[in-house]
Amino acid sequence: MSEEQIKNLEVQFEARIARDEKIEPKDWMPEKYRKTHIRQMSQHAHSEIVGMLPEGNWITRAPSLRRKVALLAKVQDEAGHGLYLYSACETLGISRDELYDQLHSGKAKYSSIFNYPTVTWADMGAVGWLVDGAAIINQVPLCNTSYGPYARAMVRVCKEESFHQRQGYEIMMKLANGAPEQKELAQDALNRWWWPSLMMLGPTDAESIHTEQSMKWKLKRKSNDDLRQQFIDQTVPQAELIGLTIPDPDLKWNEERQSYDFGEINWDEFWQVVKGHGPMNKERMKARVGAWEEGEWVRDAAMAHAEKKQARKQKQAI
């Protein structure tokens, strides 16, 4: 194809997206569109998979059967979300194996929030309430994104995600209304998860390199700063309702903006964690790669069994 022909196709392609048409796997697409989508969707899938680890930590120690079944179901949902997203990503011509390789080799990123430790039961509450809360704010607009398989996966993810946030808030509420020690646990978890949750919505608009192109492709509908403001405005009253204090002395209602003003975010910490120096980066990758490698014999055995069964069936047919 000549350069001019490609240019022409690109113009038509952008026009289709501007008309809100969906792009499907076999449609022509610019290489950059394909690459950007593989990057974002796989990052998203990896986050779901790694996101199971901090919570898996507490399944065996959940304080009641009610909490345990809920946590198990939530972690299982996350596995499911990872799988929806991986298969959506594979429609762009990358194999599952390559995607795993990128995660395991550190070439691909996952959400840096999962590089923080979950040290008390209250962290299960804070993760559900804040981390899933921030994730929902990020994800809802993606249900309308331009790439069909991604949009369809996100519709399912968002439908399932709301129970995650509610169960987290319920945990926090119960602790906040409990004994002083329990309330302290809840407050401590909020103190540790608040700022990382704000960072989770991404660097400030001035620093964000992908925003403009992503807006055009509907991979993004609102800027990081707008999403962060939305998250803060919706979360502060929820904290007040259960008697917890947001750990930000500069947090103040701004009558004029009808929004909360908030303090400076420690972006150095954010970039440190992104670059692999968070408290749990090494531990998470070790657990993930370990699970993959130790599962190899199971995958091989299943394949061998399937082949044997197939051969037996063919023999019987002769």
Binding site: A73, Q76, D77, G80, L83, Y84, S87, A88, E90, R96, R152, A153, E160, R299, A302, M303, H305, A306, K309, Q310
Partner: peptide, 23 residues
């Protein structure tokens, strides 16, 4: 509904049950 990886058809059915019909 989507796709998934499995060693054979039987496993694909079982995995599909867990991945796509949890609710």
């Amino acid at each position: 509904f989507g796709s998934l990886h499995a060693a054979d058809a039987e496993m694909a059915l079982e995995n599909a049950r867990d991945v796509y019909t949890r609710r």
